[in-house]
Computed example of a mutant assay.
Amino acid sequence: MSVWLVTGASRGLGVEIARAAVAGGEKVAVAARRPDSVPEDIRESEEVLTVGLDVTDTDQIYRAVEEVVGKFGRIDVLVNNAGRGLLGALEEISDAEARSLFDVNVFGLINTTRAVLPHMRTAGGGKLVHIGSRSGFEGEPGVSMYSASKAAVAGVSEALAAELEPFGIQSMVVEPGVFRTDFLDASSVQLPERRIPDYDGTPAHVTLDWAGEANHTQLGDPVKGAAFIYQVTSGETLPLHLPVGADAFERREVMTARIAREIAPLHAASAATAYVDAERADS
């Protein structure tokens, strides 16, 4: 039996990951900005502790972590799921809107991880599961800032995997494709206050139109996706990246092939940018 802390656990993948963990016999702390928004079937479970947590409030993060450790004695798995979206062309997005997104998706994740790590180091192990996105691997039009925030999550997770290996702590970034959750609802995704008509009909605004049409019709099943994430997390060794969903795998393959194709002709010229050893040059 492990102790899990799942942030952003009132709905979507967060609540389904919490349900999967409870069904697997784990003790689970579910964290949400509004604890009363966590579904009753989760809140009423004897194996669940519900805590209030706004990941943009550092003091609240540390209080929530101490509450979980005080209740269960430790935290074995941290699932950094809290996050939100921001759609629009980069030119339309204000500095305040971009910074607000990063406060949740990046700095909230960093600060929550920072609060949990001393407990994991003391225990001699643990697992960090960061919910990134398919868009963190492939920047997509209309979601530039969201893609940037999730690319940051991937970079942090990869670095943590190396930094924390001496302590027996593993780190994995989960990169879901599109799942049928509330993510595209107005309560989860923000649109910029300014809309530039010149972008109408271009890829950035096509994404905006798609988001309205795709809401609650996405192909990904969050229950199955969460069960898969739980299954992998419960294994002995975490992969560095975990794409979830057929679209996540397909887009990764497309982008990997494109990168390989485009850089192959440039390899020799790129390598030639190094200093030339003086002795070899003389000979």
Results as ranks from 00 to 15, higher is better:
V104A: 07
L128T: 05
I75R: 13
G220R: 11
A264K: 14
V223N: 03
T217G: 00
T112C: 03
I110C: 05
V189Y: 01
P176D: 08
S37N: 15
G168Q: 10
G125K: 06
E40L: 10
G126L: 10
L13Q: 06
D36E: 15
G142K: 05
L53I: 06
A21M: 10
S157P: 01
I229M: 06
K224D: 12
G85L: 01
S171T: 08
E279M: 09
M120L: 08
L184W: 10
A214M: 14
Y146K: 10
A269M: 15
S283Q: 13
S171W: 02
V173F: 02
E92S: 02
V55W: 09
V153K: 07
E40T: 10
H216S: 08
N80W: 06
V232N: 02
F107R: 03
R180F: 04
G126W: 07
A96H: 06
D277H: 09
A227K: 14
L87Q: 12
E250P: 00
A264L: 14
T273D: 10
L238S: 07
V143G: 08
A151R: 04
Q218L: 07
A257V: 04
L208D: 11
V156E: 05
V116T: 11
G201Q: 12
A98L: 13
M172H: 02
E26H: 15
G177M: 02
R19C: 09
T50N: 07
L109M: 15
E97T: 02
L240V: 13
S187R: 11
G155N: 07
A260K: 12
S10F: 05
R19F: 13
F228T: 15
S188E: 12
A248K: 09
A154K: 08
L53C: 09
L128Y: 01
D182K: 04
I61L: 07
S270P: 00
P35T: 07
F228A: 15
L53K: 05
A260C: 01
E16N: 11
T273A: 12
E138P: 00
D103L: 08
T56D: 05
L49P: 02
V156L: 15
A148M: 03
E140G: 06
A115M: 10
E158S: 10
P222H: 00
K127R: 14
R180D: 15
S270Y: 11
A64F: 08
E138L: 14
L238W: 02
D198P: 00
E66R: 14
S144G: 13
V178K: 08
N105A: 03
D59H: 07
T256Q: 13
H241C: 04
V189C: 12
R34M: 01
S135F: 12
A227T: 09
G220L: 11
V55D: 04
A98C: 03
H130T: 14
G168L: 07
R280V: 14
